[in-house]
Amino acid sequence: MKIGVISDTHGDYKSWEKAWEFLKDTEVIFHAGDVLYHGPRNPIPEGYNPKELSTALNTCPIPLVIAQGNCDAFVDQMMLDIPIQTPYVFSVIYGKRFMVQHGHDISDEEINRLVQKYKLDFFIIGHTHIPLLKKIGDCVLINPGSTSLSKREDKINSIGIIDDEKVRIIDLETGKEILVLEIA
């Protein structure tokens, strides 16, 4: 199993190209929302080209599963051949239960409730632009950070990779693992 996890691309095609180098051999990619639009509170990313990004996503040979973010609107869906699902995505892959929700309107208590109710193995969120890996019982909570508008102090843009042994958050510039959680 090798699964890609991204969030908060915000229309940045150049950051998608960098992320693609790590995602091109995954079996599925979960996107936790804020796909094309940079949002009124965010600066315009250096590689902002939502039209080019939508073309790249539409032609992506790997299945993409997208949850709606707070910056995703009806017009964004018009550009994508892939459904933007809302407010939650639930999926079972290789017997593992995944839930994806952007994270802008969910409390820790609600995440814990959903983890228990759905017996989740992985809960994926975004929104904060800050990567996070932590265990909630047997479930791994993953925030891959942002591919384009990091809010980390060091401004590292990042993605996540899940495989059979661990979950990794990867720096898009260097390829270094910035967070790792063993799951095997």
Rank of each mutant, 00 (worst) to 15 (best):
Glu173Lys: 13
His129Ser: 00
Asp81Thr: 10
Glu177Arg: 12
Ser54Tyr: 02
Arg97His: 03
Arg152Tyr: 12
Phe98Leu: 06
Ile159Asn: 06
Ile84Asn: 03
Asp138Asn: 12
Ile136Met: 01
His38Asn: 15
Leu149Ala: 11
Glu52Asn: 14
Ile161Ser: 02
Leu64His: 05
Cys139His: 11
Arg41Asp: 14
Thr174Ile: 10
Phe123Asn: 03
Val180Thr: 00
Pro144Leu: 13
Val28Trp: 07
Ile82Trp: 06
Pro61Trp: 04
Leu132Thr: 13
Pro43Leu: 06
Asp34Ala: 13
Gly145Ser: 04
Lys151Ala: 08
Glu17Cys: 15
Ser107Trp: 08
Leu80Gly: 14
Thr9Tyr: 14
Ser107Thr: 13
Trp20Gly: 09
Ile29Phe: 11
Asn58Leu: 09
Ser146Pro: 06
Asp81Ala: 02
Asn157Phe: 03
Asn42Glu: 15
Thr9Leu: 15
His31Phe: 07
Asp154Leu: 01
Arg41Cys: 13
Pro45Glu: 00
Asp163Tyr: 05
Val28Arg: 13
Phe123Lys: 05
Ile170Thr: 00
Ile106Phe: 00
Arg97Leu: 05
Phe123Thr: 11
Pro144Tyr: 12
Gly11Lys: 09
Asp76His: 12
Val75Ser: 10
Lys151Pro: 09
Ile124Val: 02
Asp34Tyr: 10
Lys119Trp: 05
Asp72Ala: 03
Thr59Lys: 13
Leu23Lys: 08
Gly137Asn: 04
Pro43Met: 10
Ser148Cys: 13
His10Phe: 11
Lys51Cys: 05
Ser148Glu: 12
Glu17Met: 14
Leu179Lys: 07
Asp163Trp: 00
Pro40Thr: 14
Ala184Phe: 14
Phe90Pro: 08
Ala56Asn: 04
Val65Ser: 09
Leu57Val: 02
Asn42Met: 15
Cys71Trp: 06
Thr59Ile: 12
Gly95Ile: 02
Asp81Arg: 07
Asp121Arg: 01
Glu52Thr: 13
Val65Glu: 09
Arg113Thr: 06
Leu64Thr: 00
Glu173Val: 09
Lys166His: 15
Ala73Leu: 15
Asn58Phe: 01
Leu23Ser: 00
Leu64Arg: 01
Glu173Phe: 07
Asp163Pro: 08
Pro45Arg: 11
Glu46Asp: 15
Glu109Gly: 04
Tyr37Asn: 15
Pro40Lys: 14
Lys176Gln: 10
Asp25Arg: 04
Val100Ile: 08
Glu27Gly: 10
Asp163Ser: 02
Trp20Val: 02
Arg168Asn: 08
Met78Tyr: 01
Ile6Ser: 10
Tyr48Lys: 09
Ser15His: 12
Glu27Lys: 09
Gly103Ala: 02
Ile162Cys: 11
Tyr88Cys: 02
Ile156Cys: 09
Ile124Gln: 00
Ile93Ser: 03
Thr55Tyr: 06
Gly103Asp: 01
Asn112Ile: 04
Thr128Cys: 10
Ile169Thr: 04
His10Pro: 09
Asp76Cys: 14
Leu172Thr: 04
